[in-house]
Amino acid sequence: MLGLLIEFSKSAVLAVQEYVQLQVATIRGVFSRPFYFHDVVEQFDAIGIGSLTVVLLTGFFTGAVLALQSGITLDQFGARPFVGRLISASMIKELGPVLTGLMLAGRIGSGIAAELGSMVVTDQINALRALGTDPVRKLVVPRVLAGFFMTPVLTVISDTVGILGGWIVAVYQLGVASSLYWTSITEALYLQDAWMGIIKPFILGYVIVTIGCYVGLGTKGGTQGVGRSTTNAVVAASVAVIAVDYFVTRVLITLLY
């Protein structure tokens, strides 16, 4: 039993060490040559534009259902006209970043782990190294940059369509006046909320992509291993999104409010 615990601890420490090493190599790769610019552009397209549909749908329906649910609750206090205030605060501060993060964990976290994992098991990563290319610079750096910069963009889009979804439900189902909805949204928004909603996605995007890359590059055991890596990447990235969101929120509340 003790032996198993020691083995588990060793492998956990080793995993953390390897993950940190990957971060260091990635950050070094961002600020030094060679820099594979066209791969960066390609990843901005794949991660940013490619995730647009899922983010639009998630944001829209989250805003819509939030309006429905909060409408019922606010009715108990005769506060239905303030539904916009609740939607904007929830979407921008919390639901937008977290749900976009979770969607991206499912979509790009799994995609990256599967792609890099299959490259590992088919010797393509070794082939890259044999051809004098650093796989971190070629494969990890472009994905991390794309995840880091595109997640906030996608989150803002998700927030916007969420508020739009809430507006449709508020106006056409709850009977709230359109002008009242938009007024309550702007009234309830503070600059600190916007900062919180925009800072968090940078960190979440970075975490999702680095986990996908780390798990993918560590793939062992053929096609079965690729499947295992894909599942592990989604699970780890999803849990990380929730956990990192909590800690970042705590820090930002201390710093901003």
């Binding site: 088919t122 010797d123 393509q124 070794n126 082939a127 190294r129 044999a130 051809l131 004098g132």
Partner: peptide, 13 residues
Amino acid sequence: RNHLGMVFQEGAL
């Protein structure tokens, strides 16, 4: 590695 070319077992294309 600029001195070396490698042909992998399954090609690794």
